[in-house]
Amino acid sequence: MSESFDVLEPRIDLGQWVEDAFDWFTETFEVVLDGIDTGLGWAYETLLSGLNAPPFLVMIAIFGALGWLARSWQFAIFAVLGFYLIAGMDQWEGAMQTLSLVLISAAVAVILAVPIGILAAKSQPVSNVVRPVLDFMQTLPPMVYLIPALAAFGIGEVPGIIATVVFAMPPGVRLTELAIRQVDAEVVEAGQAFGSPPGRILRQIQLPLALPTIMAGINQVIMLALSMVVLAAMVGAEGLGLDVLSGLSSLNVALGVEAGVSVVIIAIYLDRIVAALADRAPVVKAAKVRD
């Protein structure tokens, strides 16, 4: 490589190097990757079969009930009508697959993002490292990391989940870091001044006060995960994305619209549910209490 390098006609084999590094990585960590593959695959299948276990009308009732519990009867009606529409458009199966994929991806993204965000908030060096990595993850076209995900896990749901996690995680980290940093310094000082150990300050003061903003981050994670369904379908993940893709390739407007509307209904449903949970945060509730 280096002996034939010509300054005037440069050819820098970055792609090759990354591929070599990646090959080394997949071989060295084969066990780990296999574990991830099995784990995520199992989680996805389990959730999906759970969603498919009851007849769809029962499932719709459950979605409605959850909506009622979390928000209001109006929202419950919206949920019931929305999911009934999905079933009526023959998108139920794809919708449940997409819902499973999104929920698993978002869960993994949140499980990774929140602790990283907390670490970044507590340590400037960590923050300095994390920030450019997040920028990188967000600006790199998602198609690009579909390739290694595909190479490592083969066709199926798992590479879709991995790519979705990578794409959806950054706002979770950023908003968690911001949320913790934004917590009133005086209240944290109060914890210290009364002799509370750091872990307890995190648990009793920083996390509860940061929760509304962290929830906003989680919401964004879910929305970004939903926006990845078409890309996930490209690596073989089943679901609504697949219908959009086939609508695209066969110029089938009807199919594309039906799949697209289903995605939107799921998006609104999840968004409103998470927002309702954010309103249940103790700080938010306490601020609203009137005699």
């Binding site: 005086e186 209240v187 109060a190 001044a193 009364f194």
Partner: peptide
Amino acid sequence: QQKISMVFQHFALLPH
């Protein structure tokens, strides 16, 4: 915890 406590300018209460 035992010897020295503090009162803050902006109260620093736990809102929740």
